[in-house]
Design a protein around this nucleic acid. Structure first.
Length: 210
DNA sequence: AGAGAGATGATCT
DNA sequence: GATCATCTCTCTA
């Protein structure tokens, strides 16, 4: 039998026809707080490999957890430019993490992509991730960049041009929010968003009070 | 299931 | 010299 229990209607697109049409860069030229939750359910592909975005975090220059907080530096330069490009940085000297730059130039806001539900190019992802379990392929910001072969070569590239494609979601998913993960400043801001019930999150969201 | 530690390099004090 | 928007392994339960 299959992996787990069953019956959860997961709307998990298998391979096949894209769930939506490609987003253009203008999609990102808005408040990062609008864009971030709307990215849940969209599909991120790099050279045709990727999956459904199930977890993101918003960062903004005005808040000390953002890399842009102290102004432009060589590393953060693209965060201060136009919306609709990728910001890729090295994390802990080992991993790459990818963001989507939002808002008009100077705002220095971006959405960190934290987890995907793998749908396209599973074989390539397993190869890059040393044959890990499907659930371990993209369930973290450093994991998904390894699975999609995202490195600094993508830094500053447009999100609507090769090799990057972002497909719009078809239906509005149920979204949960919470505080961001792995940071030590501005820890109280609830700027983390996830697809409710997804098994591909980097970490479960705390149960929501009704 | 959760805690602790090591890896490894760019960026900052 | 310290700090990271992390991951994986190992140890304890």
């Amino acid at each position: 039998m299959a992996r787990r229990s069953s019956s959860v209607s997961h709307a998990a697109p298998r391979a096949g026809p894209p769930p939506g049409k490609p987003l253009d860069r203008g999609f990102f030229d808005r408040s990062v707080h609008e864009v971030a939750p709307e990215l849940i359910g969209a599909t991120l592909l790099v050279d045709g490999v990727g999956g459904l975005i199930v977890e993101v975090e918003a960062y903004h220059q005005t808040e000390p957890a953002a890399h842009s907080y102290r102004g432009p530096t060589p590393r953060t330069q693209v965060m201060f430019g136009p919306a609709g490009v990728a910001y890729v940085y090295r994390s802990y000297g080992i991993h790459w993490c990818v963001n989507f730059v939002c808002e008009p130039p100077g705002a220095a806001a971006a959405v960190l992509i934290r987890a995907l539900h793998p749908t396209h190019g599973l074989a390539a992802m397993r190869r890059r991730r040393a044959l890990r379990d499907e659930r371990m392929l993209c369930s973290g910001p450093g994991k998904l960049t390894e699975a999609l072969a995202i490195t600094s070569r993508l830094n500053g590239l447009w999100l609507d041009e090769a090799p990057i494609t972002i497909l719009a979601r078809d239906t509005a998913p149920e979204i949960v929010a919470g505080v961001r993960i792995g940071i030590t400043k501005a820890v109280e801001l609830p700027w983390r968003y996830g697809l409710k019930g997804s098994r591909f999150l980097s970490k479960a969201f705390p149960a929501q009070p009704l």
